[in-house]
Each structure stands twice: as structure tokens, then as C-alpha cells.
């Protein structure tokens, strides 16, 4: 895929707008349900960004886990806590938080655009899935096993915490 194609540029801006617009909808929306749906839109935009970055496996994982599983969990939590009618309120940090956010964004932009990144360390692999598999089951096999134990512990912990007495 040639990254200089105008189609890639257009796709990047469309997916970025979807991602950032969805995120803004989560934060600035008034309705909790709409916030959850905006979150799904943001996750789908991110999956498109991953496709543009040639991370095909991650794009599929993003749709399955984030847009599928996590958003369902969030909708369940919204339904079960019946605070939908109170809306998506601000707390007393609305002004200071905005100031901190703008300052952080300016600092990050300054650092990111000013840094000379190391690039061009060889060609991108034609097949990311087999490269990822060789990495995960090669040098990263111990973190992989620890992650499975973490998921089991989180599963058991979530059941214990959330069950009725």
C-alpha cells in the first residue's frame, strides 16, 4: 500500500474525525446512552486507523474486543445502575480539567512535532499475523501466559465483586 495516495489521506482524516468526534461525544454528550454509542463510533474509527497503519490483526481485535465486548459491558453497566435520567454531569473540575487538558495537549504537540524520530529500520512485513505470532510465542511467551492468568483473575474477581449476597 502506497502511503502517498490521496485516498489514504482522505481515509485518515475521515477515520480521525470519527475517532475524535466519538471521543468528544463521550465527554460532551448529555445522555449516557448516547455516550456509549459515541464510544462505539470512536472504536470503529480506531479500527480504520489501524487498517491504515497496516495493522490488520489489531484492527480485527479492536472491532471484536472494544466495539463488541467492552461496549456491551458498558451498556450493561449503564442499564443496571439506572442513573440514565441524571444524565452525564460535570463535576467541579470542569474548568481546571479543561485548562490541564489544553496545557497537556500543547506540551505533547510541542514534543511530538519537535522530535526527530528514528525511521526506516527495514521493510514492513507482508504478513503481520505470522510475525505477531512468532513474536508472542517466541520472546513474549511469558507475558502472554501472565496475561492469561490476569484475565482469569479478573474474571473471577468481577464475579465475586458483582454478585448479589
Amino acid at each position: 500500500m502506497n502511503t502517498n495516495e490521496p485516498a489514504v489521506t482522505i481515509a485518515f482524516y475521515v477515520f480521525s474525525a470519527l475517532t475524535l468526534g466519538g471521543a468528544a461525544g463521550v465527554v460532551f454528550g448529555r445522555n449516557m446512552f448516547h455516550a456509549a454509542l459515541f464510544l462505539v463510533a470512536s472504536f470503529f474509527g480506531l479500527a480504520g486507523i489501524y487498517v491504515l497503519l497496516q495493522a490488520d490483526f489489531l484492527a480485527v481485535v479492536q472491532v471484536l474486543i472494544y466495539a463488541g465486548a467492552i461496549s456491551i459491558l458498558v451498556v450493561f453497566a449503564i442499564m443496571l445502575t439506572r442513573q440514565v435520567e441524571r444524565g452525564n454531569e460535570w463535576n467541579q473540575l470542569r474548568g481546571p480539567g479543561l485548562l490541564l487538558g489544553v496545557l497537556l495537549l500543547l506540551g505533547l504537540l510541542f514534543v511530538l512535532t519537535g522530535t526527530q524520530w528514528y525511521t526506516g529500520m527495514g521493510p514492513y512485513p507482508a504478513d503481520t499475523v505470522s510475525t505477531l505470532a512468532r513474536q508472542i510465542f517466541g520472546p513474549w511467551v511469558l507475558p502472554f501466559e501472565v496475561a492469561s492468568v490476569l484475565l482469569l483473575a479478573a474474571l473471577v474477581g468481577a464475579i465475586i465483586i458483582a454478585r448479589e449476597e
Binding site: 471521543a23 465527554v27 464510544l39 453497566a77 497537556l104
Partner: peptide, 28 residues
């Protein structure tokens, strides 16, 4: 794009009341 998304998430996590919204912003 990453910096902008992180900033939006941070603002939401700091400035919202609903705990579910805070978790959504952590995901962002």
C-alpha cells in the same frame, strides 16, 4: 491524533461525575 484522543479522555476522566463515563474515558 493520539495526543488529541488522550487529552479528550483525560479531560473526561477528570471532569465527569458518572463512574461509567470515567471508565469510558479511561478506555479512550
Amino acid at each position: 491524533l493520539s495526543a488529541a484522543l488522550f487529552t479528550i479522555g483525560l479531560y473526561g476522566a477528570l471532569a465527569k461525575r458518572n463512574a461509567v463515563t470515567i471508565l469510558m474515558c479511561l478506555e479512550l
